[in-house]
């Protein structure tokens, strides 16, 4: 049962909130993408920085995979025509509500008539705006997210109105207008990043093995959600036979015949025939999706154990936060704002 049916069955006051887009750069309706569809040749896509998207939804009481807004290397200004409960995560450092600056990575109340401005980030490139409830948007194969191969996606443009089914309204707040303070650490993006990876099946195609990946690479401008192209280091390759096309993971670090490195991202084709020398960890894939052209990248190959621990820590942090959000909502008598699929119910 979706949030909508659940709310109706409980007889709660679900209403349609509206936002009007005033100014939008490259902004899309997004979610975690389409997974499990390899049998019909469909790529995963979805939010580039999955952890930030899940975090934003968690902060507003939504399910991890609820539709939200992804703002890519640009800004968004909108007017709320209804009361909203929102959270902003990812690259943006601040959000202005009626010209008053607020922290990102917190749960924020927006009153009807307010203007919300999310400035373009100075570092990092993907910002997520989650809104309590369900953004009304058409889906294909289980996802609202864009897929350029399917010619599908919803881009936000100025003048456009977006509707959200939500149970939130300022009346729920009573006289308590105090802000939430979850103080979840906001990530720092920088022009030099280190990405963790584990050894891939074709590491022996590098003369020096994965040690050959030492040094600094630069993200090239031809990078997109399909793959990130890197330049910088001359790789010494072993001459070896062709590799027959096979499935490739998101995060695969491939070497092209010309010795260039490509890191596959969420829009990648499902199969490829280039050697895979290493694979980014799940967290590193999120980090990579935030890297703008010109970013200096160093790769560190770690053991599977280190990769697992890194992921477990991220998951634990998200789980703990979800419990605090659920607790805070309950204390205010806002239990109905929590989706039955909110992360707190699995933590």
């Amino acid at each position: 049962m979706g949030c909508l049916e659940q709310a109706i069955s409980r007889g709660k006051t679900l209403s349609t909130a509206t936002i009007q887009v005033e100014r939008a750069g490259y902004v899309v309706v997004q979610d975690l993408g389409r997974s499990g569809l390899a049998a019909i040749g469909i790529s995963a896509n979805g939010a580039g920085d999955q952890n930030s998207a899940r975090l934003a939804n968690t902060l507003v009481g939504n399910a991890d995979g609820a539709a939200l807004i992804e703002i890519i290397a640009s800004e968004l200004m909108l007017t709320a025509h209804s009361d909203l409960l929102i959270a902003i995560t990812g690259a943006a450092k601040k959000v202005e509500i009626n010209s008053i600056s607020h922290n990102t990575h917190e749960t924020l109340v927006v009153l009807s008539g307010s203007t919300v401005f999310i400035p373009a980030p100075k570092s990092g490139q993907r910002t997520y705006l989650a809104i309590n409830g369900q953004i009304k948007a058409p889906a294909i194969l289980g996802s609202v997210g864009p897929d350029s191969f399917l010619d599908f996606g919803q881009r936000l443009v100025s003048g456009m109105k977006l509707e959200i089914e939500t149970q939130f309204n300022a009346g729920l707040m009573g006289s308590d207008f105090s802000l939430f303070r979850f103080n979840f650490p906001a990530p720092n993006y920088s022009s030099e990043i280190g990405l963790l990876a584990t050894v891939g099946p074709d590491a022996d195609r590098l003369k020096a093995g994965v040690a050959g990946l030492a040094g600094q690479f630069t993200v090239l401008p031809q990078s997109d959600h399909v793959g990130m192209r890197l330049s910088g280091v001359d790789l010494d390759l072993v001459v070896a036979g062709e590799i027959l096309s096979r499935g490739v993971p998101i995060g695969a670090i491939e070497i092209t015949p010309s010795g260039e490195l490509i890191i596959l991202l969420r829009g990648r084709l499902l199969t490829a025939g280039y050697p895979v020398v290493a694979v980014l960890t799940r967290s590193a894939i999120d980090q990579a999706s935030q890297a703008i052209p010109g970013t200096k990248i160093s790769l560190e190959v770690v053991s599977m154990e280190v990769a697992r621990r890194e992921l477990a820590q991220k998951e634990e942090a998200l789980g703990k936060l979800s419990l605090r959000v659920a607790q805070a909502f309950s204390t205010r008598g806002w239990k109905q704002l929590l989706s039955p699929d909110h992360a707190s119910f699995n933590s």
Binding site: S35, G36, L37, A38, A39, L244, S245, R246, G247, V248, P249, L270, T271, R282, R308, L311, E315
Partner: peptide, 26 residues
């Protein structure tokens, strides 16, 4: 694998001579 309903299995890509299985580490 696709019909196994194994918990945590995310997707299966079977090709000429390979099978790539992705899973949820949790």
């Amino acid at each position: 694998l696709r019909s196994s309903a194994e918990p945590g299995l995310v997707d299966v890509v079977s090709t000429y001579q390979n099978v790539f299985v992705s899973f949820n580490q949790l």
